[in-house]
Amino acid sequence: MSYLARFWDSTIGKKFVMAITGIVGVLFVLGHMSGNLLMFKGAEAMHEYALLLRTSMPLLWAARGGLIVAVLLHALAAYQLTQRSNAARPQQYAKTAPQVTTFAAKTIRWGGVLLLAFIVFHILHMTLGQVAAPGFVHLDPYNNVRQGLANPLVAGFYVLAIGALGLHLYHGTWAVFRTLGIARPTPTPLKRRLSVVLAAAVVLGFAAIPIGALAGAFPDAPSPVMAEGH
């Protein structure tokens, strides 16, 4: 184990952990987003999607466990690296003039904290139906979403978090290939093509749901759960 411990202890090791857990996160986000977009197909589609995920419960729990571990590792490494970074410059400059840092890079840490808070809220809200979830029905995601996002404050929080996610991905998905050392050499390493497209797609794909909910794009529909008599 010692070589793994050594790896984890190094700044690059922690960055690797962040990169790999980040990739897990991106894949999840893309899957989650495609699922979400079924909202526009209606209640039945969403219900079937929910059942599909439950084809094998052990598999689902394994995936959930994996995701939780990934998020925790990502956050832990980020926290520890931030601590090191703060210690690395005890005295600040009187005058700073960053040249190429992006807003996304500058805000990535607090954005991450926001996302973490959002994830907890989102699970309580949409998975467990414990918070701000009037009329929550298990396995009826369509109506849960429709009703859960009817509150403009809640929808606003969703949009804010989606914005943070977009910025996170804009910096993160570009950085991930460099952190892992698999980007092609280029004379313009700061140019990011893939990450712009990805971040934009994710922001649009996700934001469509709360905005759609507020705009009334999701009409009332009978709960498929009731219909099936679960």
Binding site: T11, I12, K14, K15, L81, R84, S85, A87, A88, R89, P98, Q99, V100, T101, T102, A105, K106, I108, H171, W174, A175, F177, R178, T179, G181, I182, A183, P185, T186, P187, P189, L190
Partner: peptide, 23 residues
Amino acid sequence: GHCTLTGECQEACPKEISIDVIK
């Protein structure tokens, strides 16, 4: 500290060394 790939180093480097070396 660690690298967060802001690109500031490459910009400041008087020899314009690319962040490719970090990769």
